[in-house]
Design a protein around this nucleic acid. Sequence first.
DNA 1: GACCAGGATTGCT
DNA 2: AGCAATCATGGT
Length: 301
Amino acid sequence: METITIRLDFPYDFERVLERLSMDPLISLNNDERYVMVPTEDRKIYKVEAIGTTDEPIFNIVGPKDEKKIRKIKEIFHFDRSLEPVHEHFATTNLSSIFEEHRGTPIIREFSLYATLMKSIIHQQLNLSFAHTLTTRFVHTFGEQVEGVWIYPEPALVGKLQVEDLRELQFSTRKAEYVIGVSNAIASGELNLESLALLDDEKIIETLVNYRGIGPWTAGSFLLFGLGRPNLFPLADIGLQNALKKLWGVADKPKAAEISSHFPEWSPYLSYASLYLWRSIEQDSFRNRYVSFNAPNDTII
DNA sequence: GACCAGGATTGCT
DNA sequence: AGCAATCATGGT
């Protein structure tokens, strides 16, 4: 065990990070003590704890001594890239208000690439509340806990499940087929997410959408939250459509063409535009729903 | 009880 | 190529 202390030279609001991560009941965190528990791909657990402020961000990473994993955690928490250029970019755009409002909100990646894909598929078209119910059932039933932290099951295990196993958790038949099918492709080695990660955005999307159950939204979500790519805007996302509807004060959700006409203005940081737009509506629905502590066993107190 | 949810696929024009 | 139906169920 060792503790590594990191100081950032750009604004970083960990309170907002915790607020956002609190939406997922599978993540072990403590809002008051300002920490998140992070499982690595090989089941080691790290604690990431904020001990500074938004304008003087300082963090402790506590866990097994391992340089590669520390680097991975820095990537997950966006410690390795400044948010300064992002804020500078959006200050002169039509999204400046939400970037001021949520200043210092980083893209936090999912803790594993496979989990990103499973979570995205399971979340397709469902309201966030029920979506989280399903992912929680999925992980509680087939995953496992390490040091109190829930970890998604291995692709090989999920690949061997029957559709009925997931139907019992109230997955639709199709969703069950998607989850099992993609897991099998990964388990067999046909689909290798780590090597996929070396390709550019377009190539990754092109590969992923060949799999039944992965469309443009899920592929975009994988790039954004799995790999932390900076320039993705999932046009199919209802949340983003609603966020723009609210921001622009219009009666109907804007159409894809209308939204994408702003891409030149928002590029090359479309992912941040997405993230900050999501944030702009999350407060409405989640401010009063989740409280400060997700206990390791997942009970919401 | 209708309608929508942080979509994707399938089948029909 | 583009559109409608379909999926399962919770939230509003």
